[in-house]
């Protein structure tokens, strides 16, 4: 079990992420209420949003270091608890990078809550049993690529959701509210993230297969089916440039569906009785 101090720091990190979202929403409302005679582009993150988000990332990384130090194993993704915290911290880091370099509307509204859920999931459900996979390169590579792929798919899903919202607003002729970013940029972000995530997922699938051949414990069938479904869904998404009738809203929706399946493959199966990892 993580120590009480580690859990407290983790809750603090989640609270800071939540505060950054609230600050971002309030800032957006304040800007929207101010008179303007010019159209507004995507809103740049305010200092409170950036500060709290950065604070949350520092706290998350602090938990990872503390946890690794207390266990004496420094290789990342040592156990499920640590893996979930890594996922949350990486997502928050991505948001911080985008919103401070080239803001993308309310990207933090869509991704930061996922990071918060991951931290809370780690705090309340994260397992800290040491696994032998860290002793196998294939196993570690399988874990690392799968989790990195999940981060990419989370970003793709968030961009996809923003695409759907923006597209619906434009179609309903009421594009009020914050500028979530252009459809073109959101589609580009979705495709980039899916391409990266698909490559990582493919590596994760292959290394997972190698691991099974090496005699690791049997992977639950549910996980195998879900992983295959994720792979197929993202393969369809990547098919869009070849079959352009798929581009746009369909790609966005599929990227969200794929992420839900990915969550199922990585997180949900952890709590199934048949789970072996």
């Amino acid at each position: 079990m993580p120590t009480t101090g580690q859990l407290a720091l983790l809750i603090l990190a989640a609270a800071l992420f939540a505060a950054s979202v609230i600050a971002s929403v309030l800032r957006s409302r304040k800007v929207a209420a101010a008179p303007s005679s010019a159209p507004r582009g995507p809103q740049r993150a305010g200092p409170v949003t950036v500060g709290t988000l950065a604070g949350g990332i520092v706290a998350s990384v602090g938990v990872i270091i503390w946890h690794a130090a207390s266990r004496g194993h420094w290789l990342p993704i040592n156990d499920n608890f640590e893996a979930l915290v890594w996922l949350g911290a990486l997502l928050a880091l991505f948001v911080l990078y985008i919103q401070t370099t080239r803001p993308l509307g309310a990207l933090d509204w869509f991704i930061t809550p996922v990071a918060i859920l991951l931290l809370l999931g780690a705090a309340f459900f994260g397992r800290v049993e040491y696994h032998d996979y860290v002793n196998s390169t294939w196993s570690w590579l399988h874990r690392a690529t799968s989790y990195a792929g999940a981060v990419a798919f989370a970003i793709a899903a968030a961009a996809g959701a923003m695409y759907v919202v923006t597209s619906r607003r434009l179609r309903s002729k009421t594009p009020v509210g914050p500028n979530l970013g252009s459809l073109e940029r959101l589609e580009h972000l979705t495709m980039t993230a899916v391409t990266l995530g698909f490559a990582l997922l493919t590596i994760g699938t292959i290394t997972g297969g190698v691991r099974m051949l090496e005699g690791a414990k049997n992977t639950p069938p549910t996980k195998l089916v879900l992983a295959l479904a994720v792979w197929v869904v993202y393969a369809i998404v990547l098919h869009a440039p070849i079959n352009p009738s798929f581009r746009g809203r369909k790609v966005a929706v599929l990227s969200m569906v794929g992420f839900v399946l990915m969550i199922g493959a990585i997180v949900a199966v952890q709590f199934l009785p048949e789970s072996a990892t």
Binding site: P39, R169, N179, S182, L183, E184, H188
Partner: peptide
């Protein structure tokens, strides 16, 4: 005109 340009900016990035 400015609203048309703004809407275009919600569809196209550049």
């Amino acid at each position: 005109a400015s609203v048309a340009v703004d809407h275009a900016g919600r569809i196209f990035d550049h």
